[in-house]
């Protein structure tokens, strides 16, 4: 039982890291820090909706720490962690509020939470309140990217849910 769980979490982390690494190669979408597709969140979403909150947390943290090292940008780990944990909390909360056909809704709110968490971290680091001006732009990008990753995640849950829950 435990071995099965460990294996599933490990495979999901590997998938998340692969997606993350591919996303690193994509060109920047907009010259605003934090605007990116966040495709690796598909895995967090799928894990949360199939295996549950604890597995999702483990996969998330492993992906962020290892991903930060792969990207050669350990300073970014702090921002990713703040954003990732905020998105995670929103996802866990939304899990109780949405059906399997509304997973994309949870993803939209998680993406907005992700960007708000990143701004909070940047605010704390730079001590610059005017960073809050980026919140609306990041909310717009969060809705769009969140819906996209959400539908991808929803599709994955529908197709892989049974196998993952076994």
């Amino acid at each position: 039982m435990e071995l099965r769980r460990l294996t599933k979490d490990g495979v999901l982390t590997a998938v998340a890291l692969a997606i993350f690494t591919v996303e690193l190669q994509l060109p920047e979408l907009a010259p605003v820090p934090g605007v990116k597709p966040g495709l690796a969140n598909i895995v967090t979403l799928v894990t949360a909706f199939t295996l549950g909150p604890w597995d999702a947390l483990a996969v998330l943290i492993a992906r962020i720490v290892l991903g930060g090292l792969i990207a050669g940008n350990p300073a970014a780990i702090l921002y990713s962690l703040c954003g990732g944990l905020a998105a995670y909390l929103v996802t866990v909360l939304m899990r109780r509020l949405v059906t399997e056909k509304q997973i994309w809704v949870a993803s939209v709110f998680a993406a907005i939470g992700h960007n708000a968490g990143q701004i909070a971290a940047a605010l704390a680091v730079t001590g610059t309140p005017s960073l809050l001006y980026y919140l609306p732009v990041l909310a717009v990008s969060g809705v769009i990217t969140g819906a996209f990753t959400g539908f991808a995640g929803q599709f994955a849950v529908r197709r892989l849910g049974k196998a993952l829950r076994k």
Binding site: E28, P31, G72, T126, T128, S130, L131
Partner: peptide
């Protein structure tokens, strides 16, 4: 910096949203 977001932001002339270089903790407003 690794991400070059600050460079790609380009000219700042009148918007209240600042130029940010998060890796260097630098802000121009």
């Amino acid at each position: 910096c690794p991400d070059q977001v600050c460079v790609r932001r380009g000219w700042l002339s009148s918007s209240p949203a600042p130029i940010v270089c998060l890796p260097h903790r630098l802000v121009i407003r």
